[in-house]
Amino acid sequence: MEQGQFKYIRNEDGKVSRVIRIGTRKSELARIQTASVADKLKELYPDIILEIVAMSTTGDKILDTALSKIGEKSLFTKELETALEKNMVDLVVHSLKDLPTTLPVGFTIAAVLKRENPHDAVVLHPKHAGKTLESLPVNSVIGTSSLRRAAQLKKRFPHLEFKDIRGNLNTRLKKLDEKEDFVAIILAAAGLKRMGWENRISQILEPEDCMYAVGQGALAVEIRASDADILEMLSVLNDGDTVLRCIAERAFLRHLEGGCSVPVAVHTEVKDSQLYLTGAVFSLDGSESLKDTMQTSIPVNDKCQEEVDEKVQRVGVTAIKVGSESQANAERLGVDLATLLLSKGAKEILTVARQLNDAR
């Protein structure tokens, strides 16, 4: 039965339970990620009924063009957010790195779950098993759809060539294994682990080789900002350290006015009540770069936010069970680091990178 915008089901014993409809992309990885969130919710709230609604997004449909060339900010989120807006679903599970730093009006990220390994991983063609990027033959072709990865790795491994590769994880691994086009591909370690394919990881790229994308490895749950009950329900899923790290990263990216069409990378860490943020911008070929690190304090006895409204959104995140002072510090850290890099010429590097990418 429908009541207002919500859906309910009457059980055999006459009890009425609310149905929570969860939107997700159709890819196997997206379904696995969504199922993991659903399992946590079912464990915490055994009386709710969960219904998963899968759909294709623009990014899933356009597979012959590099992501950075499509020019759409919400490649993997637009259709899901439309379903949310039309009350077809009540919440949506995303890879946080797919979510723009500015969300459409009326939406918020209600939960950021504990981060999986955010680093990038090298997956080698079986005949090159045991090698690393450094030991691969000269002119080996490496597949990646990310300007960020290519820019850093071109600089670090000039003997390699980098070419675009598109498709979901299954498709890209099949292209690697069944053809001779690529010697290796670069993928997010988190996705490989969630798919149960850790055995395919030949090398984890440390920050010295390749810093990761903003939000990489974290799952986010997006809702309508007006759904206070859903916001409260999801708040228990928040992982405090992950929330603060990702707020800092997203604030950094937003202040730089970056996106998937420019190479921006980060590395964050929470240690001894301090949040450390390293951020960098690169030219397309990696020959030019700016990189710096800043830190801020995370108050140990920081209280949770007492009031929930759109004013406490920080780069799209409304984390009501995470200290408000810590969140404010994290956001300020991202802005301050971006401001520092901009003062050193980051805007010029990113502007040229964007122009060159558009001209490719």
Rank of each mutant, 00 (worst) to 15 (best):
D209F: 06
D209E: 15
L234N: 06
A213V: 07
I223K: 06
I230F: 03
E208F: 06
I230R: 10
M233S: 08
A225V: 07
I223Q: 01
E232I: 01
G215P: 06
A213F: 11
V236P: 02
M211Q: 11
E208W: 02
D227H: 08
L219T: 13
L219D: 02
L231C: 10
E232Q: 10
C210V: 03
L234E: 03
S235W: 11
G215H: 06
Y212C: 08
L231H: 05
M233K: 12
G217S: 11
M211T: 05
E232G: 04
L234K: 02
V221C: 09
M233L: 15
A220W: 05
Q216V: 00
M211F: 05
D229E: 15
A213D: 15
P207T: 08
E222G: 03
G215S: 09
E208V: 09
A225W: 00
C210G: 04
C210K: 05
D227L: 06
D229N: 13
Y212K: 01
V236A: 12
E208L: 09
A220V: 05
Y212I: 01
S235F: 08
C210M: 05
E208N: 06
A220N: 03
D209L: 13
P207G: 10
R224C: 10
A213P: 00
L234Y: 00
L219N: 09
M211R: 14
D227T: 08
V221E: 05
S235A: 15
E208T: 07
G217I: 06
E232N: 11
E232H: 11
V214D: 00
Y212T: 04
C210N: 13
E208P: 00
L231K: 02
D227R: 10
Y212N: 14
A228S: 13
A225N: 09
P207I: 15
V214C: 11
L234T: 12
V214W: 04
D229Y: 06
A225D: 09
I230E: 03
L237Y: 02
S226K: 09
S235V: 12
A218H: 08
A225Q: 07
I223H: 04
A213H: 13
D227E: 13
A220Y: 03
A218K: 10
L234S: 06
D209Y: 13
S226G: 02
L237A: 04
G215V: 05
A225L: 14
I223T: 06
A220F: 05
A213C: 11
G215Y: 00
D209P: 02
A213T: 07
A225F: 12
S226I: 10
V236L: 15
P207K: 15
A225C: 10
I223E: 03
Q216F: 00
A218V: 08
V214F: 00
I223R: 03
C210D: 12
D229F: 07
V214R: 00
G217A: 09
I230A: 11
I223C: 02
E222C: 13
P207D: 13
A225Y: 02
A218N: 12
L237S: 06
I230M: 15
R224G: 03
L237E: 10
A228F: 10
M211E: 07
A225M: 09
Q216G: 01
E208K: 08
E208Q: 08
I230S: 05
E232S: 14
